[in-house]
């Protein structure tokens, strides 16, 4: 039981209050709190930077450009909590989207092509899992390899042509709205709630934390480490495929360079949300907040006509500062 309290910071926020540390400190010095404060600051700054920023439908519309990454980042959070990492999801998005488009072009009906893409995503994720779990290679370098490989295969599959002319019902998912909220955003919020509950409330969720905290201990505790990790990698692939299809629908066309550099954004969201890079700690809520933070920052800077080059600088700085801060907070709480 004691290992569990350590391994599940989300549930343990209350239980930790039993330690000598004052309760307010435990709450304040949580990475998610910092992310939330940053989010509010970002909203205020962005509103002051440009009078055109603070418009709800505009922010929602802009957020649809990031929802695909945000959804994948939720699953990536689980992978990182389990002590692994996956840098290949953006390339997986491209390869699955190209699979979809190429099979559509070859005459496969859209629904079947979508199923094909999702299956492909599962296989690509399983391949990552195979290399990491069966061959016991470090996930970080394996997925750097597959990052290059998958995008390369996308290029082999689709050339550098853009494949489009999908039927109208398929195109424009981001313009479909429910209760005034674009569908991709709804999917993201829904996925956040479901995954947040799974990670925070279920035994399965707790097992992920335990694996990330100490894989050896988790194995001794009878947790099926390999199966869970494999499952997470496959889930990454499946989610990336769905994200790839969402991108295909949003753009109405697919090219091999879809989502180039997306892995940086996804990792940024997870890190910014306070997930511990060495595993064992982190929450879906943190990543959820961080995704909005990123949307606000990127949108705010773009609408204020701040040059893109400053945006690159800010993104890089944010990633570094967020891991330093998260690291420091966990080190402090452990004392």
């Amino acid at each position: 039981m004691s290992t569990e309290t350590h391994a599940t910071p989300q549930v343990s926020a209350v239980r930790d209050a039993a330690t000598p540390r004052p309760r307010w400190q435990v709450i304040v010095f949580r990475p998610e709190t910092v992310t939330f404060l940053l989010l509010i600051i970002a909203i205020i700054v962005a509103s002051n930077l440009s009078p055109f920023f603070a418009n709800f439908s505009f922010i929602l519309e802009s957020s649809t450009y990031y929802s695909e990454y945000s959804i994948v980042a939720l699953v990536l959070t689980m992978v990182i909590i389990s002590g692994e990492i996956d840098l290949s999801p953006a390339s997986t998005m491209a390869l699955t989207a190209c699979t979809f488009a190429a099979s559509y072009q070859a005459g496969v009906p859209i629904p079947a092509a979508m199923v094909l893409a999702v299956i492909a995503g599962g296989l690509l994720g399983a391949f990552n899992g195979l290399m990491v779990i069966v061959f016991q290679l470090p996930s970080i370098i394996v997925t750097i390899g597959t990052l290059t490989l998958y995008r390369g295969l996308a290029q082999v599959l689709a050339g550098d042509k853009s494949i489009g002319k999908f039927p109208t019902w398929f195109v424009g998912l981001d313009y479909r709205e429910l209760l005034g909220i674009p569908v991709p955003v709804l999917i993201f919020v829904g996925a956040s709630i479901v995954l947040g509950l799974i990670v925070g409330m279920t035994i399965f969720g707790r097992q992920i934390y335990q694996i990330g905290t100490s894989e050896v201990a988790a194995r001794h505790a009878g947790i099926r480490v390999r199966a869970i990790k494999m499952g997470l990698f496959i889930l990454m692939g499946l989610t990336s495929a769905v994200a790839g299809l969402m991108a295909a629908s949003r753009l109405g066309s697919v090219r091999y360079d879809l989502a180039t550099g997306g892995e940086l954004q996804m990792v940024l969201m997870v890190m910014l949300g306070g997930t511990y890079i060495f595993g064992g700690r982190g929450t879906i809520l943190g990543t959820f907040l961080a995704s909005w933070l990123l949307v606000i920052i990127a949108t705010g800077m773009t609408v204020a006509n701040i040059v893109i080059t400053s945006q690159l600088t800010v993104m890089g700085l944010l990633l570094i500062i967020s891991i330093i801060a998260t690291n420091a907070i966990y080190a402090r709480n452990q004392r």
Partner: peptide
């Protein structure tokens, strides 16, 4: 087009 795919495959095979 094959270049990137070959790079990636080569990294994995080397691993």
């Amino acid at each position: 087009f094959w270049q990137d795919a070959i790079y990636g495959a080569v990294i994995l095979v080397a691993l």
